[in-house]
């Protein structure tokens, strides 16, 4: 029985690229944050695939380290999003960039 390691790596690449694309093209901060999550998840997937390939559990352990990073990032990112919405009444990053603070 062979594990689909190469295929899993390619899948992780595809997911990562989609995430990057989302970060670049979306203007809503919530979407941007979600796309960052996608990128992190793709990286995690690559870790797990690498773990399977080398027959070592280290990769899986590192996936577990990706998790708290993602969680902390979401906590702070969403707090910032809320703050932005409070102050500018919008989540559009372009609009925020246009608005000069006094």
């Amino acid at each position: 029985m062979t594990l689909p390691i190469n295929e899993a790596l390619i899948l992780s690449c595809i997911l990562f690229s989609i995430g990057v694309l989302g970060v670049v093209v979306r203007r809503n901060i919530i979407y941007v944050l979600m796309c960052i999550e996608i990128m992190m998840n793709a990286a995690g997937l690559a870790f797990v695939a690498a773990s399977a390939r080398h027959g070592s559990l280290d990769g899986q352990a590192f996936f577990l380290f990706v998790l708290p990073v993602a969680a902390a990032e979401v906590a702070i990112g969403l707090a910032i999003a809320l703050l932005i919405f409070q102050r500018y009444k919008t989540l559009d990053l372009w609009v925020v960039a246009r608005t000069k603070e006094a």
Binding site: A8, V48, A70, A71, L78
Partner: peptide
């Protein structure tokens, strides 16, 4: 995909933590 890569524990963690906790926050 994790399951098919012989990582069932991580598959569960993915569902519980990512889908269960983080995405609920979103």
């Amino acid at each position: 995909v994790f399951l098919s890569l012989n990582a069932p524990f991580l598959a569960l963690v993915e569902i519980i933590v990512y889908a269960g906790a983080i995405m609920v926050l979103f």
